[in-house]
Simulated assay, not measured.
Amino acid sequence: MRRAVALVAGLALAGSAQAAQKLGEAQAQRSPEQVYSAVCGYCHGKNVGPVIRGRGLPAEAVEYQVRHGQNAMPAFRPTEITPAELKALAAWIQTSAADPKEHGQ
Rank of each mutant, 00 (worst) to 15 (best):
1 M>Q: 15
1 M>H: 12
2 R>G: 13
3 R>C: 10
3 R>E: 08
3 R>L: 15
4 A>S: 12
6 A>D: 08
6 A>T: 15
7 L>P: 13
11 L>D: 14
12 A>M: 06
13 L>E: 13
15 G>Q: 04
15 G>D: 03
15 G>T: 01
15 G>F: 01
16 S>W: 13
16 S>G: 07
16 S>P: 04
17 A>C: 11
17 A>H: 10
17 A>K: 07
18 Q>H: 14
18 Q>L: 14
19 A>E: 10
19 A>K: 14
20 A>K: 07
20 A>P: 13
21 Q>I: 12
21 Q>L: 14
22 K>D: 13
22 K>P: 07
22 K>H: 12
23 L>V: 15
24 G>I: 03
24 G>E: 06
27 Q>V: 06
30 R>D: 12
32 P>D: 02
32 P>H: 05
32 P>M: 02
33 E>M: 10
35 V>T: 12
35 V>E: 02
36 Y>A: 02
37 S>L: 09
38 A>V: 06
39 V>I: 08
41 G>D: 00
41 G>T: 03
43 C>G: 02
44 H>S: 00
44 H>K: 00
46 K>Q: 11
46 K>Y: 04
50 P>M: 15
52 I>Q: 00
54 G>D: 01
54 G>P: 02
55 R>D: 04
56 G>S: 04
58 P>A: 12
62 V>I: 10
62 V>S: 04
64 Y>S: 12
64 Y>K: 15
64 Y>V: 09
65 Q>R: 09
66 V>I: 14
66 V>E: 03
68 H>Q: 13
68 H>T: 11
71 N>T: 09
71 N>G: 07
71 N>Q: 08
73 M>D: 01
73 M>W: 02
74 P>E: 13
76 F>K: 08
78 P>V: 08
78 P>A: 07
79 T>A: 12
80 E>R: 11
82 T>L: 08
82 T>W: 06
83 P>V: 04
83 P>E: 05
83 P>N: 09
84 A>M: 07
84 A>D: 09
84 A>W: 04
86 L>D: 01
86 L>W: 01
87 K>Y: 06
87 K>L: 09
87 K>G: 03
88 A>E: 02
89 L>V: 02
89 L>R: 01
90 A>F: 02
91 A>G: 04
93 I>Q: 00
93 I>R: 00
93 I>F: 00
94 Q>T: 06
95 T>V: 04
95 T>Q: 12
96 S>I: 01
96 S>N: 01
97 A>S: 14
97 A>R: 07
98 A>T: 04
101 K>P: 02
101 K>R: 03
101 K>H: 05
102 E>P: 03
102 E>A: 00
102 E>M: 01
103 H>Y: 08
103 H>Q: 15
103 H>I: 05
104 G>I: 04
